[in-house]
Amino acid sequence: MILADKIIRLRKKNGWSQEELAGKMNVSRQAVSKWEGAQAIPDLEKILRLGELFGVTTDYLLKDDIEDEEFTDPNLDSSVKRITLADANEFMEWRKSASIWIATATFLCILSVIPLFILGAASEIPSVGISENFAGGVGLIALFSIVAIAVGIYIYTGIKNAPYEFLDKEPFDAEYGVRGMVREKQKAYRNTYVKGNIIGGCFCVLSPIALCAGVFTENEFLITVMLSVTMLIAGIGVVFFIIAGVRWASMQKLLKEGEFSVQGKKVSRVKESMGTIYWLVVTAVYLGWSFVTNSWHSTWIVWPVAGVLFAAVMILCNLFVDKNH
């Protein structure tokens, strides 16, 4: 393979256009075009720069009989998957879309119990003419239907994310230029990430105001409506958290930083398992209590209490993980 073909191959692996490579080499696009068309040969200084830029040896660039890339890192493990610039950009673009899907599914899960709450409270009003059994039945149908849509979205994002699962499960290396590019994107996104978390936090903190306002009335239906408004506002806050967090996490994952470092992955797996178990238990308690007592209008208290206790559970989880690592 001649030098011209190797330059084309390496440029495309890194996801660069001729203009981008020319900018990195401080030459014109026409010069790169001539190199790739075998109409001109870079001088020695440019050869050395190409080797540094692509992370390959000058022997690989200059010797036509060397077909396989020879990287300048002597410790590079060829069995470890290497992330190119194109791979990194594709992954971050997908996670940008996935953040919307995941936020939508989570928002639906939060709102799924609202029809059950509203119908349950309405059944207590004689003038409405809805029986408790009818309200409970329709409310449960709505709950499971909405959750089914959310689960479908989660499954879809999981399938679409399958090609990138190795980032969590296997060691990987980034080709030359990938980390620099990701850091630039991370730097540009930082303000948006901070704003997303601030807005999400404000929505979550302010969400109980609606429920507190309902305390000043003895109308149970109005209290239930205020509870639903509280959940709606909290759900909006969660959406901001997820969209900002998923996009930020995609960059940290490529950089192997934060919770995606070797130590961070261990901590994250423990916290994720604890969180899953916790909410499954809470859901089981809520449904069990509600079915046994048929008091759907009052068993909703499980959710705000569980939300408050969840913070305590996560703090204890962090203390346990820190103590054992």
Results as ranks from 00 to 15, higher is better:
residue 114 I to D: 08
residue 308 V to Y: 07
residue 225 V to E: 05
residue 230 T to G: 11
residue 186 Q to V: 00
residue 294 N to L: 08
residue 89 N to V: 01
residue 155 I to P: 00
residue 220 E to I: 09
residue 191 N to K: 12
residue 97 S to T: 11
residue 235 G to A: 11
residue 193 Y to H: 13
residue 36 E to R: 08
residue 81 K to A: 02
residue 218 E to T: 12
residue 85 L to I: 09
residue 166 F to H: 01
residue 285 V to P: 02
residue 309 L to R: 06
residue 183 R to T: 08
residue 98 A to M: 04
residue 288 G to F: 11
residue 207 S to E: 10
residue 125 I to A: 02
residue 107 F to S: 09
residue 307 G to Q: 07
residue 184 E to K: 15
residue 322 D to G: 12
residue 253 K to I: 04
residue 279 W to D: 05
residue 300 W to P: 00
residue 291 F to K: 05
residue 42 P to L: 03
residue 247 R to Y: 06
residue 55 G to R: 04
residue 21 L to T: 08
residue 316 L to Y: 04
residue 32 V to R: 07
residue 277 I to G: 00
residue 122 A to M: 15
residue 181 M to A: 13
residue 214 G to A: 08
residue 205 V to G: 04
residue 183 R to C: 02
residue 182 V to S: 03
residue 136 G to M: 14
residue 74 P to F: 07
residue 72 T to D: 10
residue 310 F to R: 06
residue 263 Q to D: 15
residue 38 A to F: 06
residue 281 V to W: 08
residue 99 S to W: 04
residue 120 G to V: 04
residue 25 M to A: 09
residue 325 H to G: 00
residue 8 I to M: 08
residue 205 V to D: 02
residue 258 G to L: 03
residue 112 S to H: 08
residue 263 Q to R: 07
residue 65 D to T: 12
residue 200 G to Q: 04
residue 19 E to K: 09
residue 225 V to F: 06
residue 175 E to D: 13
residue 250 S to A: 15
residue 37 G to P: 02
residue 200 G to C: 06
residue 226 M to L: 14
